[in-house]
């Protein structure tokens, strides 16, 4: 009856599919990804369908969300960042809903798979590189030498900046994955202590389970927020190459 707290993350292939040696089997994570997309899309479409001047509950929730994402983009990227509104909003909603749906007991947290978060973060980072090179050409490499670096430090700064650039998508992916995984492991451990402890002492870990569950709810929002605001920041960096920004002033 003892179960590993990591057991919840294991995936079995439910519908094995293989095309040309490529394993695209359907497992729990895939199903839950579909559920997340369906729920997020259904909520937003439903919220947007009435378009009343005096919004109802659902509509005002959706408006709040859109406004929140919009101000996040304007704060970090400025006006030209609004081009990326669909991307950022999709990322934010997908991550938020998969975190929240993952909190329902018995369901699965898609974002606790590092491959999911890694694909997101590397796509975002790749996009920022493409935009940077498209807008600035070779000058974009200037991102490796921060403004105000003394000449003799340049050979030292370039490897450091290369590593710090490569670390961006890694930290983006690891942060979301680690937070979701750690939270669910913690909940699993505490809850198994509750079951094992019985009535006499079991209430203590149970109280912690409830408290951590509340905290996880906040973390679900925070992680979605952090992921999307850092996406904005990285894309914004590609827009406004900081060296040039400062020369302009």
């Amino acid at each position: 009856m003892e179960e590993s707290p990591l057991h919840q993350f294991e995936l079995q292939n439910w519908v094995p599919i293989s095309i040309g040696g490529l394993d695209i089997s359907i497992n729990k994570a895939v199903i839950f990804m579909w559920i997340v997309i369906a729920v997020a899309a259904a909520l937003m479409v439903m919220a947007g369908s009435s378009r009343k001047l005096v919004p109802g509950k659902l509509q005002s929730l959706a408006e709040m969300m859109v406004d929140f994402i919009r101000s996040m983009i304007l704060d970090t990227m400025g006006k030209e960042g609004m081009r990326f509104f669909p991307l950022i909003a999709t990322l934010f909603l997908f991550i938020l809903f998969s975190n929240l749906i993952g909190l329902i007991p018995g369901s699965y947290t898609v974002t606790s798979q590092i491959i999911v978060t890694a694909v997101f973060s590397f796509v975002v980072y790749g996009l920022s590189l493409v935009i940077g090179f498209m807008l600035h050409g070779v000058k974009f490499l200037g991102i490796l030498v921060p403004p105000g670096t003394p000449g003799w430090l340049v050979p030292l700064m370039i490897p450091i900046e290369i590593i710090s650039q490569v670390a961006r998508p890694v930290s983006l992916a690891v942060r979301l994955f680690a937070n979701m995984t750690a939270g669910h492991v913690m909940l699993a451990v505490l809850f198994s202590l509750t079951i094992g402890g019985g009535l006499l002492i079991g209430w203590l870990p149970f109280a912690f389970t409830v408290a951590i569950y509340g905290l996880e709810f906040g973390i679900a929002f925070i992680q979605a927020y952090i992921f999307s605001i850092l996406t904005c920041v990285y894309l914004g960096d590609a827009f406004h190459l900081h060296g040039h920004e400062e020369h302009a002033h």
Partner: peptide, 19 residues
């Protein structure tokens, strides 16, 4: 504050892993 704390911690770790 929690968000910031989490962010900075991972930032350090990720760069170390990459380096």
């Amino acid at each position: 504050g929690l968000g910031q704390a989490v962010r900075i911690g991972t930032e350090l770790l990720a760069a170390l892993i990459v380096g």
